[in-house]
Amino acid sequence: MPALLRPCLVLMVVLTLITGVLYPLVVTVAAQTAFPHQAAGSLVVEEGRVLGSTLIGQPSDGPGWFWHRPSACGWDARASSGANLAPVTPPQIQAWHDRATVLRATGLTGTLPVDLVTASGSGLDPHLSPAAALAQVPRIAAHRHLNPQQVRTLVEGMVQGPDLGVLGAPRVEVLALNRALRTLGSGAP
């Protein structure tokens, strides 16, 4: 047993220094040199004010903004969480029902885009499907006294396709959309 103890302890210390200290520090230095914006969290800063992160969904209620998907953690970016209810259980079905009621009250008709009814896995999903963004156009255009076609064009111009043409799903980043919306409201024809 004592014969095992020395190799065990020495390896533990040396490998801890390499994988627990050296490795994270080297990665940090390389990352912050090559990709400083991403390494810091892809923050959006306007005139010294941090608006958020392009990667993190945020509260965007109010009739004049594009709404994010429902969040099970109330957009708390320190406590990411999904709802974790099975899709066959009454509490989950009730939650969908309540959200659909709110959406219908905003004047949405027809088939509801499913990402507006379901909560994301992270509670911080920064994206909407193109259909979910387009569905919100009439409400936003009416509230901001804009031409709906103008808002629709804005959305369509900001759709990101699947990565490399095949991976993932088409999507729109909501914070970018809302920022663009502001400029649209402040004087574009």
């Binding site: 998907r69 974790n84 969908w96 909407l128």
Partner: peptide, 15 residues
């Protein structure tokens, strides 16, 4: 609810 019957609950739009 006349929503798309796709189970996106707990999933991310980008995936």
């Amino acid at each position: 609810l006349n929503a798309e019957p796709v189970n996106l609950e707990g999933k991310e739009v980008r995936f």
